[in-house]
């Protein structure tokens, strides 16, 4: 397997405080990778450096063997990095299907002023078919004509996923997808994501708080604390790493620790 995303030695500081120190994270093709850490560990900062929302002080981001460190956000999106948001970001006053349609249109770069004027800018039949296929996959087929304001948070998050899928990303970044969802909704979301990922074969980088979801969903795990990586490796093993438990619990004497494998 080849790495599609290679971020090496990313460092970032804000007014003197070091938010990230030499963080290097790789994601292989079609892989499901997790990134966890307590609040304030630097997950969001790292995420923003990958996406181009923030410029790291040092370090490079390579995607498909191309240096994208200098590209603006929308260019990175065009290169094939899709994302969802922790605090859900949908286009207000717009229906579910329109979210997918505009992403589809932008992805195929079929927009032009003159085409718009002669009415060719409207959604075309083939586009609608492709969007409906993705909605079907997400289990949102019934909701295509609903305005997004009418959706539950879980459905909204799926719309975000669908919108990102229309740009045919080779890497999907999920920013705390379980936040605001209860246990059942989280489990349903994980199931849907796994099905789609199996079908489309893109890679996933999951930033999460919910240890359950991470353990369940990812193959490999990185753990951040105080801005640096404290552990990495296959998920199940990494979760047992003493440093990880310390990061979450402090140096608490945990009674059942000896009983662990």
């Amino acid at each position: 397997m080849t790495a599609i995303l290679e971020s090496s030695r990313i460092a970032k500081s804000f007014s003197g405080i070091q938010a990230l120190t030499d963080v290097s994270i790789d994601v292989m093709e079609g892989e499901r990778v997790g990134l966890i850490g307590p609040n304030g560990a630097g997950k969001t900062t790292f995420f923003n450096c990958l996406l181009g929302v923030l410029t790291p002080d040092t370090g490079t981001v390579r995607f498909h063997d191309r240096d994208i460190s200098e590209l603006p956000v929308h260019k990175r999106a065009q290169a094939g990095i899709g994302r969802t948001f922790q605090r859900i970001e949908l286009f207000s006053d717009t229906t579910v299907r329109e979210h997918l349609l505009i992403a589809e249109r932008v992805h195929n770069e079929r927009g032009s002023f003159w085409k718009d004027l002669i009415g060719r800018g409207r959604p075309q039949a083939d586009e609608i078919d492709r969007c409906d296929a993705v909605l079907e996959l997400l289990g949102l087929a019934e909701l295509g004509d609903e305005p997004v304001e009418a959706l539950s948070l879980g459905q909204g998050r799926l719309v975000e996923v669908g919108r990102a899928l229309m740009t045919e990303p080779s890497l999907l970044l999920l920013d705390e997808p379980s936040s605001g969802l209860d246990r059942e909704e989280t489990a349903a979301l994980a199931t849907t994501l796994r099905e789609i990922q199996a079908e489309k074969g893109f890679a996933i980088l999951l930033v999460e708080h919910d240890v359950d979801l991470v353990a369940d969903f990812t193959e490999r795990l990185y753990v951040l604390d105080f801005g640096s990586l404290i552990a990495e490796g296959p998920t199940a093993e990494t979760l047992q790493h003493p440093a990880v438990r310390t990061a979450y619990l402090g140096t608490l004497e945990v009674g059942d620790q000896e009983a662990m494998p």
Partner: peptide
């Protein structure tokens, strides 16, 4: 224009600029 690519792009930007950028 409103129903075409430009209008829909602008509507997306108005709805959420970060999300619009995230799809390119």
């Amino acid at each position: 224009l409103r129903e075409g690519t430009i209008g829909r792009t602008l509507r997306a930007l108005r709805g959420s600029e970060v999300a619009a950028e995230s799809i390119g």
